[in-house]
């Protein structure tokens, strides 16, 4: 039997955009989507797609990518398909706004996973670069009652078990769990592969499946919020930097040492 893999992917504002383009609308408590800067697939979610593809390189597997949101840039969200994933499910509804409330998002995703009759393995990026919540994957594991291994940098599946290398502060540990399971991955997994031309053409032909809230048999009344965003602001940072100069770069290095000595730092 082919291994059935689900991958969660989120469309986010490009975190690599110039900082000068970053704006917060403090009245609406939201980050202003910068014009002319297209969104991207969350970076850690691309690592998750890569983890799934590495499994598929080694064994028979199908990869279904699931995303939740109000509107999607299709060319962006098709990137996992062009990398080699098989299927894309977009959970699209005006109610699925980009909320800081992870409980809401995880509930929606859990319903979609149930509708897809579950997976052997769900792979997620450790956190999304917008709210940095690092909660939806772990919460989804709880809602679905799955074994859970967090912060993996290598994921293998054999004999109905997932074995993962997890990053720890001093190195890594090898952890195993029975399937079905959910794992989160981090950048340590390695660079996601680039889409091939053939992959891009195949992705062009594929149509995503779109499910609304009612397709999921959900009712907004049952989605009571767990957290409330009270305010959102850009923090005051920065200080006056004292530039150390010298006759040349090497001299500036010496002047820096003298300055730190003056301040009794060395």
């Amino acid at each position: 039997m082919a291994l059935k893999i689900g991958v969660l992917a989120k469309q986010v504002i490009d975190p690599e955009m110039p900082m000068a383009a970053f704006r917060v609308d403090s009245d609406a408590n939201k980050v202003v989507t910068p014009p002319n800067i297209p969104p991207v697939v969350n970076g850690f979610d691309e690592n998750a797609v890569e983890a799934a593809l590495l499994l598929k390189d080694a064994q028979e597997a199908t990869i279904t990518v699931i995303s939740s949101g109000t509107e999607f840039a299709l060319d962006v969200m098709k990137k996992p398909l062009s990398m080699g994933a098989d299927e894309l499910i977009l959970l699209q509804d005006d109610a699925f706004g980009n909320t800081i409330d992870s409980f809401f998002t995880a509930r929606v995703l859990a319903e979609a996973v149930r509708k897809l009759e579950g997976f052997d393995l769900i792979i997620c990026g450790r956190q999304a670069s917008d709210w940095d919540n690092a909660q939806v994957p772990l919460g989804l594991a709880e809602l679905l009652g799955l074994s859970c291994i967090a912060l993996c940098r290598k994921v293998d599946v054999s004999d109905g078990k997932v074995t993962a290398e997890c990053t720890t502060p001093d190195g890594y540990e090898v952890v195993e769990a029975d399937l079905p399971a959910l794992v989160t991955v981090s950048n340590e997994l390695g660079q996601p592969r680039y889409p091939t031309l053939r992959g891009i053409m195949a992705a062009t032909r594929k149509k995503p499946t779109i499910w609304t809230m009612s397709d999921l048999g959900m009712d907004s009344a049952e989605l009571e919020p767990r957290v409330t965003l009270r305010s959102l602001f850009v923090p005051e940072t920065g200080q006056d930097c004292e530039y150390i100069e010298g006759e040349n770069a090497a001299d500036a290095g010496r002047q820096l040492a003298l300055k730190l000595r003056e301040d009794k730092l060395i």
Binding site: M19, D132, P225, R226, V227, T228, L229, F233
Partner: peptide
């Protein structure tokens, strides 16, 4: 901190 530390969110828990 949210958005990689570019913004700060103040939140409260409802339950």
């Amino acid at each position: 901190p949210v958005y990689g530390g570019n913004a700060i969110a103040v939140i409260s828990c409802d339950l």
